[in-house]
Computed example of a mutant assay.
Amino acid sequence: MVGKADTRMQLLGEWYSKLQQIATKLNAISRKYDVSFEQFLVIEQIIEEERKSPSELAVFFKTSLPAVSRKLNLLQSKRLVYKIRGEQDDQRLMRVNATPEGIETYESIKAELLTWDAQLKDHDINLMAMVNHTLEHAN
């Protein structure tokens, strides 16, 4: 007889496997445009949510400023974002904007994601909703 703990462990394994499949698909879509899905999410925050400072991005992604700086430097080297220094007469302050190429890349990936999303099955959508709910309560 399988115990309750064994069933939960099996569900965790299945849950993790399904999440890996989804992550693989998201990265495959974004890789067509030479960015990771994580990089796409950074560009999305800059464009859609107008999170323009590294500190705003660090808070949103729950990560450190050095980690955000590395991500922004990589996106800048790909010419998808650019940095603006010295607003408000303080050279320490930096803002980030998407370049026209960054906006085009973002829009292309977003269009593919929306097409893929339309093909998802109800149980995949339910899984994502459950993951969101679980993570909100776990943190």
Rank of each mutant, 00 (worst) to 15 (best):
V2E: 08
V2Y: 08
A5I: 13
T7N: 05
T7H: 01
R8Y: 12
L11P: 15
L12Y: 12
E14C: 06
W15E: 11
Y16R: 10
K18W: 00
I22V: 14
T24E: 02
T24S: 11
K25D: 03
K25H: 09
L26T: 08
N27L: 03
A28V: 04
A28N: 05
I29T: 01
I29C: 07
R31K: 13
R31F: 10
K32A: 03
Y33C: 02
Y33H: 09
D34S: 04
D34E: 06
S36A: 04
F37T: 05
E38L: 12
V42A: 09
V42I: 09
E44G: 10
Q45T: 11
I46W: 04
E48V: 15
E49K: 14
R51D: 03
K52H: 15
K52C: 14
S53R: 13
P54R: 14
E56S: 15
E56Y: 04
V59G: 02
V59A: 06
K62C: 07
T63V: 11
S64L: 06
S64P: 06
L65R: 15
P66G: 11
S69M: 01
K71H: 03
N73G: 07
L74I: 07
L75Q: 08
Q76M: 05
S77D: 10
S77Y: 04
K78I: 06
R79D: 11
R79S: 15
R79E: 15
L80N: 03
L80W: 00
V81D: 04
Y82M: 13
K83V: 07
R85P: 06
G86L: 12
E87R: 14
D90E: 10
R92T: 15
M94N: 07
R95K: 14
R95A: 15
N97M: 11
N97Y: 09
A98K: 14
T99H: 03
E101V: 05
I103A: 03
E104P: 05
E104R: 00
E104N: 05
E104T: 07
E104C: 01
T115W: 00
D117A: 13
D117K: 09
Q119I: 03
Q119R: 10
H123C: 09
H123L: 07
N126S: 10
M128I: 04
A129R: 12
M130W: 02
N132C: 06
H133G: 10
A138I: 02
